[in-house]
Design a protein around this nucleic acid. Structure first.
Length: 353
DNA sequence: CATAGAACCTGTATGC
DNA sequence: TGCATACAGGTTCTAT
């Protein structure tokens, strides 16, 4: 569900509200949500407790929070037991430098949300309110625990006052894990001020996204044209270019006046360039609006919706008039989903009709 | 290697 | 009302 603008909105919120915080405890309510973590829920908790969230970084739809060792203070009150037992809760944090570079990696899948609770700072996007107080959850109130709460991080030392970072996910395609950071030549994901060429292992194969300053657009155009597939499939292939999903692919193709089923190897360089430029443009515009949301399934870390759905030209607009020519927007089946396009502005290739 | 399709989950909307 | 089916913003695994 969340595509680049939505994930970037979340990354920005985490940057402002939870970077600098120390993880004091971790609750995993659904094991499946940490299935990508090597070692299971206990190991996941072990590798987070006592560590500081030092940045918020994104590539495409993946986002991660690099970890560093927090000040070596006891994590919890020493248990008043007669026999001291070594448990994850009582273990002292290891001295700085003993951990390999690692990060808390998140993918929101189709319905994942990261909600910051207890912060007294707003990250509201226009045209929303200028400032809102995110309430601290209180037992007994409706927002105490979201029905799809899968993982909760308990935080301290957040400059914003954030107390909890909640991972909420209805469809459970999203996931959290702790991953080693591995060097990948030349990559500069959003969130790194300079070149820190470190990516979580599961992100190493993900291509740069269209808002990455390190993107080589001409090289990307060549790679797209070297493929033998439909242009929309190439747009959605995260190893070709990342961040584009079903919504922005359709919007980009409409802006570029290219039908989704056109073969990449038959497109002219100028057409491919226009499609990619359009995709970058529509995602930048969506980002400025706080992303696209049709319902409560996508919200930013404050629980607020984005407003870009009002700007969508074709996605979800079946039988509505094309904003350019007035023809009725059509919907086609595509990869167990839908493609929306204008039958006049985006003529279908011959092999399709 | 490149490409296409199924699988992974939960929930809502729609039609019979 | 009950039940079946279709559909939803994504990625990974498997088969070809």
């Amino acid at each position: 569900m969340p595509e680049l603008p939505e994930v970037e909105t979340v990354r920005d919120g985490l940057d402002r509200l939870v970077v600098g915080a120390v993880v004091r405890d971790v609750e995993v309510f659904r094991e499946y949500s940490v299935r990508r973590h090597d070692g299971g829920p206990d190991s996941f908790r072990d590798q987070l407790v006592g560590r500081r969230l030092s940045a918020a970084v994104r590539r495409g739809k993946f986002l991660w929070l690099p970890l560093e060792d927090a000040a070596p203070t006891p994590l919890v009150e020493p248990a008043p037991s007669v026999e001291p037992v070594e448990t994850p809760a009582t273990r002292q944090p290891e001295p700085t430098g003993t951990h390999p570079a690692a990060a808390l990696l998140a993918h929101l899948g189709m319905s994942g949300q990261l909600l910051v609770r207890g912060a007294a700072v707003s990250i509201a996007h226009a045209p929303g309110p200028a400032a809102v107080l995110v309430p601290e959850p209180a037992p007994g109130t409706d927002d105490w625990q979201h029905p799809h709460l899968r993982v909760r991080l308990h935080l301290t030392d957040a400059p914003s006052g954030a107390r909890y970072l909640d991972f909420v996910d209805q469809r459970t395609f999203g996931h959290l894990s702790v991953q080693d950071l591995v060097p990948v030549a030349g990559s500069i994901p959003a969130g790194y001020g300079s070149d820190l060429p470190l990516l979580p292992e599961p992100v190493a194969h993900i291509a740069r996204d269209l808002l990455d300053p390190g993107l080589d657009l001409d090289d990307l155009i060549r790679r797209v044209r070297r493929r033998r597939t439909q242009v929309k499939r190439a747009l959605l292939d995260q190893t070709v270019v990342s961040g584009v999903g079903n919504i922005y692919a359709d919007e980009a193709l409409w802006r570029a006046k290219v039908h989704w089923a056109r073969q990449t190897d038959k497109l002219r360089t100028a057409d491919v360039r226009r499609v990619l430029d359009s995709a970058a443009e529509v995602m930048r515009e969506a980002l400025a609006q706080g992303g696209t949301s049709f319902d409560e399934l996508y919200v930013n870390v404050n629980g607020e919706s984005g407003y870009f759905d009002r700007s969508l030209a074709v996605y979800g607009q079946e039988n509505e008039e094309c904003r350019r020519c007035g023809a009725l927007v059509r919907r086609d089946a595509f990869m167990n989903r839908s493609s929306f396009s204008c039958p006049v502005c985006q003529p279908a290739p011959r092999n399709l009709r």
